[in-house]
Simulated scan of single mutants.
Amino acid sequence: MNFLQLARAVKRESGLSGGPPASVTTASGDDARVFEWVNWAWRDIALAHESWLFRRGEALGQATGITLPPDAALPGFALTDWASWKQQNPEYRPSAWRVADGQASERGLQFLPYDQFRSRFLVGAHSPGPLRCWSIAPGGELLVGPTPDSVHQVRASYVRDVVDMTLDADEPPLPARFHNLIAWRALREYGGFDAASEVYQRAEQNYSMGFSALAQSQLPRPGFGARPLA
Rank of each mutant, 00 (worst) to 15 (best):
G210H: 02
A78H: 11
Y158F: 13
Y158W: 06
V10M: 04
R56T: 10
M209N: 12
A46L: 07
P75C: 04
S105H: 05
I136G: 03
P128M: 03
G57R: 13
D161K: 10
N39H: 00
V10F: 00
M209K: 13
G139F: 08
F35D: 02
T166Q: 11
A27P: 01
E13G: 08
Q216M: 12
Q88V: 13
S51E: 13
A137N: 04
M1Y: 04
L6D: 02
P69L: 05
Q62D: 13
P228Q: 04
P138C: 00
D168C: 02
L122V: 09
Q153C: 11
W97D: 01
A176K: 07
S51H: 09
E50A: 12
E50V: 05
D30L: 04
R56G: 10
G223Q: 05
P69Y: 00
P130G: 12
A100K: 08
W134C: 05
G102W: 05
Q116A: 15
T67N: 10
G191W: 05
P20S: 08
Q218W: 06
V144E: 07
F117Y: 04
P130H: 08
T26F: 07
G192S: 10
D31Q: 03
Q88R: 12
A59I: 08
Q88P: 12
L16A: 09
R12K: 15
R43E: 11
N89H: 14
Q218P: 09
L16G: 00
P228S: 06
